[in-house]
Design a protein around this nucleic acid. Structure first.
Length: 991
RNA sequence: GCCGCUGUGGUGGAAUUGGUAGACGCGCUGGACUCAAAAUCCAGUACUGGCAACAGUGUGUCGGUUCGAGUCCGACCAGCGGCACCA
């Protein structure tokens, strides 16, 4: 045989032959063990296949081909996520119907994928935009509806003014539409939702266990980052719900003498309650409740509208102002609400107050849009000292800041008297300008001021001088000494410590008397000292001082971690964790609140006011109300002759034949739901359809579902970390709950391929003109080279920059393989059928089998390719190449470069396809080299390498090592203290 | 801010999980073949000093553990990705 390696010719030849033999059809009847290998099916965009797709599809194709050779019945299907906005937008621009455009794109994708030699089972191809498919999407909608998992409600939703449709929360990125980057606004609409929140926690139903969206993550092999992202998206928070009574009394003086849980009785609270509603707040930090100085409700909170419509004498007195604020809030786009996060705005509800159930204190109530209406209760207790957002708001509106948690520091430990500290603030007596803060501890009746107990007397003098010199102030005044203040001070310890260290203003006094004496005696002293008791300090200077300290040092950063409670009545001294439990317990006893779990995850909004999607199978009748379309009437077909320009309502509204129907219940005139479903609904269950794509009686036959599912290996881009994967899991759990499938996690092993970037390291994009078209690469180098190159680029999950120049490596490798193939087939028949007699080569061959097998199993294709190259380089050095060995190599190569492997396999005389071959096995006995190089180190430094028989004993190696010149040189004149020996690897002589 | 990840030659990246740092590929240098070129093959290619043998240095920085650290621990620096007013 002769001829050069022509990728073009042989790739066409084998692709045709694979198609002729019926592709890689998975048999439902096979007795072999099954393996379901799935790619995230593509949206058939007009841009065609991306080299990133190629990486994804090649990886799973290698795995599929590998598993088939290992004797598995492999299901490796492909389909099209064909509904969606781009086709519709294209249609609006060009007038080409989405259906037509989509099918053109599918044809192009199919051609491109086939040109890569991906071993899909094309007989199972599905298209979510076909009525045969979306009939079952609609059926599943009805399934959810009938089980109370799909419902319709009026809701403030994300609206994209450009796409003219609603977006799911997940589709709003940084306040703009994920697709067109238009700022998203809020709009009130009646919309369909799926109750995904019903499946967050584990449940049992009719004897079936259904793992929740949280705990289910534990039993699947997914990237840790993806699991974390899902957990974060679900956002489970344990906390407490607390009821604050509303008082309609005019503002009162705060009463702090009731602080402490046990001192409040329900009697007293009844008196506080002035016959009005409660505000329920949710908090994860109920331990900070003694620091609550106001309450905030979201603009959407019912209390607000109730207060505005309330015509009685009581209630809020600044309705106009509040209404104005609500108006302004509504006009804000999502982006503005996000971007202006730091500048918090709000309005006080004048005339009402909330009663802190623990302090009995009446605190003001604000309405502010930094509180979300759709999370928790839509109301929060604000603790500015321990929450950054509350702090920012409090600073802006000049609200009191009260510390109720102290950090556990070196000097303040749990179980220790910690409220002994004092703080002193030093100002210039004349100007009142701040000079320094000093802190210390009061121990055994002695009063210390200073940075610690170690400072010597001269430190204070130095400090005083320093103040003088650095500031030029002549008169300095110690403004305040207060245990109370110290708490605030400690609350910001990290920052303040640094500050103190930086200024070096440390000094120390033994006690009050001594302190005064010393200050008097010190000629440098310019201080006047005012000693204040704790109570006085608090009463006189606490609040202004707190703010002063915060402004000076903390600059918006506050202590928001767990610590030890302070000034929290009976709970003082408890650690945060214990305090949360005790306080919650107290609330439950007094019926003022309870333990509560909240989630970030909201129900899934599936209505879309667009044309190119699956119609929602619901009919609205004036007499019978909302009616599901009877199953036998499915599918509700998408009409093809519709004006699909967006107007804000679904284009389907304008199709009378579609829109005007008879009520399935009473037969009177009724209207069809004109919204379509989010395309994510279609893609949430497609993996189920592949097991039985042509079924007209059910979404899939239960037996086939049982045979093939769950998916063993699933692969796709990391951009689907939350949306698609979460929705698909929800569908599986819902179907599992009602017994339609027998698993609750659909994808057992998930891997993401990294992004393939352009040569310039940026994202490939049309506008940058740096897109690499796989067609061009296949034309220039061939599909096998492209496949090999993409696998060889680096770890699958890493982002990698494309480099066309580097394709010559894999291409040269294949040419070398080709030449070896010629060499093997030209050898005399005698040489053909026997393994190599070269022991070293045989060991390498078996090592390669092992390495490639393991690497494919672990998706480490880059190192698998490299080990194939090493084997070829070594075989190429041989005068004669055993045909057996070469065939073994071809089998190893065939998943990576199937066309050339097939061609050479055939040329070596095989009648059948290499895909019918058997994956080689390695012999563990042959993995060990006969001789090994042992590294000899002296004190950990490499000094020699000696070749010894594999398995050599320490004694023998040591003898050889000591004979080595270089080793001898380095141990000369020294005594050997220790010898470390790692068999077959290393010897370290320590001298 | 929170979560996750990464940092190794000119370059993409290897390194059996604590045991020869730089496999394999690209590029580069020199050579063979050729009238010449392409292709192919051979040799070399971390840095510094040296003609060399060789010595020293070296995996973002600083420190630690160890006979031995790219790998483990601590602190920091730089970059990437995701989430972000979720109380």
């Amino acid at each position: 045989m002769a001829g050069q390696y022509s990728a073009k010719t042989i790739e066409k030849k084998w692709q045709d032959r694979w198609a002729k033999q019926g592709d890689f059809q998975a048999s439902d009847q096979s007795g072999k063990e099954k393996c379901y290998v799935l790619d995230m099916f593509p949206y058939p965009s007009g841009d065609g296949l991306h080299v990133g797709h190629v990486e994804n599809y090649t990886a799973t194709d290698i795995y599929s081909r590998f598993k088939r050779l290992q004797g598995f019945e492999v299901l490796h299907p492909i389909g099209w996520d064909a509904f969606g906005l781009p086709a519709e937008n294209f249609a609006i621009k060009t007038g080409v119907h989405p259906d037509q455009k989509t099918h053109e794109n599918i044809a192009n994708f199919t051609r491109q994928i086939k040109s890569l030699g991906i071993s899909y089972d094309w007989s199972r191809e599905i298209d979510t935009s076909s009525p045969e498919y979306y009939k079952w999407t609609q059926w599943l909608f009805l399934f959810l509806y009938k089980n109370g998992l799909a419902y319709r409600k009026q809701a403030s939703v994300n609206w994209c003014p450009s796409c003219q449709t609603v977006l799911a929360n997940e589709q709003v990125v940084d306040g703009v539409c994920e697709r067109c980057k238009t700022e998203v606004v809020q709009k009130d609409l009646k919309q369909w939702f799926f109750k995904i929140t019903d499946f967050i926690e584990d449940q049992q139903f009719e004897g079936r266990d259904v793992s929740g969206l949280i705990s289910g993550l534990k039993k699947i092999d997914w990237p840790e980052s993806t699991k974390k992202a899902q957990q974060h998206w679900i956002g489970r928070s344990e906390g407490a719900m607390v009821r604050f009574h509303i008082s309609q009394q005019p503002a009162r003086i705060a009463t702090r003498n009731v602080a402490g849980g046990s001192t409040i009785n329900s009697q007293q609270k009844t008196e506080d309650k002035q016959g009005q509603e409660d505000i329920e707040v949710f908090t994860t930090r109920v331990d900070t409740i003694f620091g609550c100085t106001y309450v905030v409700v979201a603009p959407e909170h019912p209390l607000v509208s109730q207060q505005l419509t309330n015509n009685s004498q009581q209630g809020i007195s600044n309705k106009a102002e509040v209404e104005k604020y609500l108006e302004a809030t509504k006009k804000k786009t999502e982006l503005e609400r996000t971007e202006l996060a730091k500048d918090k705005t709000g309005v006080k509800l004048e005339g009402i107050e909330a009663i802190n159930p623990f302090t009995g204190e009446a605190v003001p109530v604000f309405v502010a849009d930094y509180v979300l209406g759709n999370y928790g209760t839509g109301a929060v207790m604000a603790v500015p000292a321990h929450d950054e957002r509350d702090f920012a708001f409090a600073k802006k509106y000049d609200l009191p800041i009260r510390i109720s948690i102290e950090p556990v520091t070196g000097t303040v430990r749990e179980n220790e008297e910690f409220r002994r500290s004092i703080v002193a603030v030093v100002e210039d007596a004349k100007t009142g300008k701040f000079l320094s803060i000093n802190w210390g501890e009061k121990l055994g009746g002695n009063l210390f001021i200073g940075g610690g107990l170690e400072e010597e007397e001269d430190v204070i003098q130095a400090a005083v001088r320093e103040i003088e010199e650095e500031t030029g102030y002549k008169h300095v005044k110690l403004v305040a000494v207060s245990e109370k203040i110290h708490h605030h001070y400690f609350a910001a310890s990290k920052n303040v410590y640094r500050n103190i260290e930086a200024t070096g203003l440390h000094f120390r006094l033994a006690d009050k008397e001594k302190a005064e004496q010393r200050l008097e005696a010190d000629e440098h002293n310019k201080f006047t000292v005012e000693w204040i008791t704790r109570e006085d300090a608090f009463a006189k200077v606490a609040d202004p001082l707190h703010r002063y300290l915060f402004d000076k040092f903390i600059q918006g950063k506050i202590f928001a971690e767990d610590g030890v409670l302070a000034d929290s009545g009976a709970f003082s001294g408890l650690a945060s964790q214990a305090a949360r439990e005790k306080i919650t317990q107290w609330l439950e006893e007094k019926k003022l609140g309870e333990k509560k779990v909240n989630y970030r995850l909201r129900d899934w909004l599936v209505s879309r006011q667009r044309y190119w999607g699956a119609p929602i199978p619901i009919i609205y009748c004036d007499t019978c109300g909302e009616q599901p379309v009877p199953e036998q009437d499915l599918p509700v077909s998408l009409p093809m002759d519709v004006d699909f320009r967006p107007t804000g309502e679904s284009p389907l509204t304008r199709s009378e034949s579609f829109h005007d129907v008879l009520c399935p219940k009473c037969g009177e005139k009724a209207r069809r739901e004109s919204d379509t479903m989010d395309t994510f609904v279609c893609s949430s269950w497609y993996y189920l359809r592949f097991v039985d794509p042509k079924n007209t009686e059910a979404f899939a036959d239960p037996e086939k579902l049982a045979k093939w599912l769950p998916v063993d290996v699933y692969m796709g881009g990391a951009e689907h970390t939350v949306l698609h994967l979460l929705y698909a899991r929800f569908f599986a759990k819902a179907l599992r709950k009602y017994g339609l499938i027998d698993f609750d996690e659909p994808f057992m092993k998930l891997r993401h391929q990294g992004m393939v970037l352009a040569e310039d390291g940026r994202k490939m994009s049309k506008s940058l003109g740096n897109v690499v078209n796989p067609d061009d690469v296949v034309g220039q180098f061939g599909a096998d080279s492209l496949r090999l190159y993409e696998m060889f680029m680096g770890p699958l999950e890493d982002a990698k920059a494309w480099k066309t120049d580097n394709l010559v490596g894999p291409r040269r490798f294949l040419e070398k393989v080709w030449r070896m193939g010629e060499k093997v087939s030209q050898q005399s028949a005698i040489n053909r059928k026997q393994g190599t007699e070269n022991n070293a080569l045989r060991t390498l061959l078996h090592k390669t089998i092992q390495k490639v097998t393991q690497d494919i199993e672990e998706f480490r294709f880059n190192t698998a390719v490299s080990s194939l190259m090493i084997l070829v380089n070594e075989m190429d050095r041989q005068a004669k190449i055993s045909q057996d060995d070469f065939e073994t190599f071809l089998l190893l190569l065939s998943p990576f470069a199937p066309h050339i492997a097939e061609e050479l396999w055939e040329r070596l005389g095989h009648a059948g396809s290499i895909t019918e071959g058997v994956w080689p096995k390695f012999d563990p006995k042959l993995l060990q080299d006969e001789t090994v190089d042992i590294v000899v180190q002296v004190n950990g430094k490499l000094r020699a390498k000696i070749a010894v028989a594999s398995g050599a004993q320490q004694k023998d190696v040591e003898t050889l090592a000591l004979q080595d010149e270089k080793v001898a040189l380095h141990i000369q004149g020294k005594t050997i203290r220790k010898v470390i020996f790692v068999p077959n690897r290393l010897m370290n002589i320590v001298v």
